[in-house]
């Protein structure tokens, strides 16, 4: 009597299962194309980062840190992080992790920015999308792994796929917020001078929403990094895999080294993208 009535069972799990199976069976070709694209992007980044000699990457990061942050300690500290990661013997794994993050971020932006623009332009679309984004962000990230695994098998591709799903909401949201936040008086003025909606988008809305979009990019990057460890459970190589191995073998020291490397990578990426985003807000016109 006190138990929840058993006949009210909603067979959602069954529906989802059959939907996923149906997709795997009937949309295999599309999944293959998506998989090829994801793999292509990832492999391109991975090859490039592993091909570059370590000191080139190190100098590149130091220069970027200086350019973004403009403080003397930035290239020293952030470059130092990379040296420490290398000294743990994790250079190649760190580069693979970086490649996975870059690939996921690039794909997230390609999907997220246009989606954010569409969301800003249509209240109906925004209304439909908002709860989906909420769901994507609150759903435990492990849950994405299962369909990703079923769609793309083990390896790098499902890792990128799951990372994109997890990391894309912030850039969609912040693109939407940025564009909606552009002052109506500026848009009205552009209209009054006969600007087309495309001109308004490219010359008014996107430039003015840019600081907000940059914050979105920063957050998306951090989300992608957070997903990397989890994605290693389905076979993505990198620092996450190392953590996972250390947990399985209960090797505290090794786990700590790998974990610390991820933390330093996170700080490095966050400080640089954050500073770039902040810099955009004070940009002077070009002439």
């Amino acid at each position: 009597m006190m138990d929840f009535p058993g006949f009210l069972k909603l067979p959602l799990a069954g529906w989802i299962d059959s939907a996923v199976s149906w997709i795997v069976v009937n949309l295999g070709a599309i999944l293959d194309v998506i998989g090829d694209v994801l793999l292509g992007v990832l492999v391109a980044f991975e090859r490039a980062l592993l091909w570059l000699p370590w000191f080139v990457v190190l100098i590149g990061v130091a220069v970027l840190a200086w350019f973004a942050i403009r403080k003397w300690w930035a290239p020293v500290l952030l470059g130092g992080f990379l040296v420490i990661i290398g000294s743990f013997g994790y250079w190649d794994l760190a580069m693979m992790t970086l490649a996975l993050i870059f690939a996921a971020v690039v794909i997230s932006l390609l999907i997220g920015i246009p989606t954010g623009i569409a969301m800003a332009r249509s209240d109906t679309f925004a209304g439909v999308l908002r709860p989906i984004l909420d769901g994507m962000q609150t759903m435990p990230s492990f849950v994405y792994l299962i369909p990703a695994l079923m769609f793309f098998g083990l390896g790098k591709v499902p890792a990128v796929f799951a990372t994109v799903i997890y990391a894309v909401p912030p850039v969609i949201r912040l693109t939407n917020v940025g564009i909606r936040g552009v002052s109506q008086s500026v848009i009205e003025a552009a209209k009054a001078f006969g600007a087309t909606s495309r001109q308004i988008l490219w010359e008014v809305q996107l430039p003015l929403a840019f600081p907000s979009i940059m914050v979105g990019i920063n957050q998306t990057t951090m989300m992608a990094l957070a997903m990397v460890v989890i994605a290693s459970m389905i076979g993505a190589r990198g620092l996450g895999m190392e953590v996972l191995l250390a947990i399985n073998r209960i090797e505290v020291g090794r786990g700590f080294e790998a974990g610390l490397s991820i933390v330093m990578l996170a700080i490095l990426i966050d400080r640089i993208t954050h500073a770039l985003a902040a810099r955009q807000q004070h940009t002077k016109p070009s002439h």
């Binding site: 002052s183 008086s185 500026v186 009205e188 003025a189 552009a190 209209k191 009054a192 001078f193 006969g194 010359e203 008014v204 430039p207 003015l208 940009t283 016109p285």
Partner: peptide, 17 residues
């Protein structure tokens, strides 16, 4: 709007960037 009219707004409506 491009050829015949011009408009001035109370809140200026200038492009801040």
């Amino acid at each position: 709007r491009r050829s015949t009219t011009g408009m001035v707004f109370q809140h200026f409506g200038l492009l801040p960037h």
